[in-house]
Simulated assay, not measured.
Amino acid sequence: MVPVLMLVVMFWSTAVSTQRPFSCESAGPADMVLLVDGSGSIGIINFHQVEVFLQGLVTPFPIGPDRVQIALTQYSDDPHTEWQLNDFTTKDQLLDAVRSFRYKGGGTNTGKALLHVLEENLKVESGARQNAPHFLVLLTDGQSQDDAIAAGNHLKKTGVEIIAVGVKDVDMAELRQVASEPPHMNLFYLDEFPLLSWAGARLAHILCGKMEKHSLAKNILFQPRLSLSSSMLGVSQDQQQGLQVFRDHSFTITCSIQPQYPGGSFHLTFTGSNTTLRHTLTAVNHSANFLFPAADHAHQGNYSCVYEVYVFYHNFTSESELLSLTVAANPLAAFIIRVVVVLLTLLTSNTALYLYFKTTRKPAERGSIELVSLHSSAEAGPGEERAAHRMEQEESAV
């Protein structure tokens, strides 16, 4: 469990040492979702402390489509999006919304709420940006009534960093597994709701440092590149061409980066129509090859690559541009099928014509032979008649 005294001292020392309101003007673009527990255990009086916490948290950040964007979802039995990332473009608009949203009440389905953030709040149409880091701040006071740990792991696999704040009777063992690593930077506990009134400003400092680190990474790391090769195409193609692979053929997505620092790893993120997956490989010679044995429609979607390396006593990351991939039917297989159909059609037609002419020719030939035989019998002698009779028997046998 996170020591209560340590956090209280940390928060208090920051509060008394601050001479003027903190401002995080150096933060680069970032997307932050606030996930707020509005269950019945909090109560309307404590919910006012939650609002004060949120005001202190969002006030230091520059708000706008090119700076920091903040969404909020309140949950109890079901999650409800109060506003999306792209709903507000000024700090005043955002603070007005924080002061005016209403307490829900109900149960505590944290797992469902976490998945809601991924499926609703962190979509491109909701304002999420591919080139910006994604943070989720979870505030709760109890134990989840569904599987919050599995949902949290799913979000973290997609690259979302989860900062969890627990209050009073929260299940800290559960919250520890939901939060991102390391716990001393992403997991916090307060034993009373009134402490929230100044905890928001302290958490803003921590988040500001995370955003500054992401901005710094853009200056010290090159951007990784994505390329595609497949057993059908034979050669890698540039991601700007609108890539296509053929069904049932293997393909490889290669992440690479210009040499700067040794080591590191590549995280390949796939976003499809109904799923988001992440694969990780250690960098070898500043690249990593992700092999897909057989393409199908489940592989159709957007791919991005994040290079992560530990330098200057910090982990830094840099993200590639998107690679859009479509999966099409194999044209060679379709051509072969068409050729086989044409050949079978020709063979069937020729066979039918042969049988037709064969059956229509035999009666005519037989009638001609009979006329010749009768004519010969009338003019021939007994020996010749017997020979003609034998010939007629042979023709009948045929």
Rank of each mutant, 00 (worst) to 15 (best):
F135R: 04
E25S: 09
G159D: 06
G107T: 07
A201Q: 09
A204Q: 06
V306Q: 14
L344F: 01
E212K: 08
A217N: 00
Q260H: 13
F47K: 05
S231N: 06
P62K: 04
F22S: 01
D87E: 10
C24E: 10
I42V: 06
K112E: 10
E392H: 15
S126F: 02
M391A: 13
L325Q: 01
V178T: 06
G159T: 05
F312D: 13
L277R: 09
A164I: 09
H184G: 13
A388P: 04
G107C: 06
N289G: 06
L139S: 10
H389E: 15
T276A: 07
A288F: 05
P133A: 04
G28K: 00
T108E: 02
Q244S: 12
T275Y: 03
V341M: 01
V8A: 08
V50P: 01
M185E: 14
H299D: 06
V160A: 09
K112Y: 13
E321T: 14
A113K: 00
Q240A: 10
S396P: 01
T59H: 11
D171H: 07
S396T: 09
S197D: 14
Q49P: 01
Q260V: 15
P60H: 14
H249M: 11
S39R: 00
Q241Y: 11
D92A: 14
A27K: 00
G106A: 04
M10K: 15
V309R: 03
G301E: 04
Q177C: 08
P259G: 08
I220H: 00
G209A: 12
L216Y: 08
F357I: 01
I70H: 12
E379I: 15
E120V: 11
A15Q: 15
S76M: 01
F193M: 11
L355P: 00
P182A: 07
N186A: 15
Q55H: 14
S287C: 12
E394P: 02
Q393L: 10
R176L: 06
M232E: 13
T108R: 01
L228Y: 03
P29K: 06
V311H: 04
S231Y: 02
P262H: 09
A288T: 08
V339Q: 00
D146N: 03
F193A: 10
L85V: 04
L85Y: 03
H134V: 08
A199N: 08
T140V: 03
T348M: 02
S227E: 05
